[in-house]
Design a protein around this nucleic acid. Structure first.
Lengths: 135, 135
DNA sequence: CCTGGTATTGAAAACCATTCCCAATATCGG
DNA sequence: CCGATATTGGGAATGGTTTTCAATACCAGG
């Protein structure tokens, strides 16, 4: 138990999951990824998709957000995933822009401080309809 | 179909659900409310609890947020619920403070604008451990 | 006070995303 | 090649939420 990132062997399935995510510009649910793989003939079990998605998230290779409907979605962000940031997500196609707002970070911390809350964390996601999905 | 708020008869169950929520300072899940009612002898079916919670949410009488774990929680906010605001929520006891941040609102809109996203909405919740729950 | 019509209820079943279980399989070091 | 270890994936289990539908409550009019 080192506490370091989970190391796992490079497997066909792991690569398939990673690739599927990387090919997509937006956030995708585990089910989406599973369906996509299945469509392109890649045979990967659903549990395996979930496992790799989680592993990627744990390793900080993908961003995770919960849609307002409660589905968990993942997005491959490469190195960017390791910097704290938020997203502007298209609610139609899932496409997302990385955004950051130092002001928001400061605001969250100061508000929490003022109320005596510790161990602060925050969720900030902006949803909209991207230009391609309008009309 | 008027589009107006859902009107429903005042029923024992509806009142029970509303009261249970009103008595709590924090966000509570449907299951919590159900358990609480059951404990105090009120006999209300689980589906009925869900129904009233949703109705209250639709009417704008309660705020709804999804915990990072994906549970849907409700909080009675009275009139305050009708003004746009966010929450600082204790992740231990569910207690919540209403907070607002005009700067955040403006930021969200402007960021979306810059990227050509329309119909903008946003989720901003701050989680922490309240002073009572520390240590 | 009946009666018919509409709304509400709640138990059980359906849903659905996610997790768990575990036997079969793949891979690695020696 | 062998034994040890890791990964896989199908199916069952979970758990929150929604749906279904028959029983019940409530209303207005006769």
């Amino acid at each position: 138990m080192t506490g370091g990132p989970t190391r796992r062997r490079e497997t066909r399935q792991g690569e398939a999951v990673r690739d599927a995510l990387a090919q997509s510009e937006g956030f995708r649910s585990a089910q989406d990824v599973y369906a996509a793989l299945r469509t392109e003939g890649e045979n990967v079990g659903l549990s395996t998709v979930y496992r790799h998605l989680q592993a990627l998230a744990d390793d900080g290779d993908v961003d995770v957000i919960h849609t307002p409907e409660g589905e968990t979605t993942y997005r491959y962000c490469g190195d960017a995933a390791r910097r704290h940031h938020h997203h502007l997500v298209c609610r139609v196609c899932g496409r997302a822009e990385e955004i950051e707002g130092r002001a928001v970070e400061r605001w969250a911390v100061s508000v929490a401080d003022q109320h005596g809350y510790s161990d602060v964390d925050h969720t900030v996601e902006v949803f909209g309809t991207c230009s391609a999905c309008q009309g």
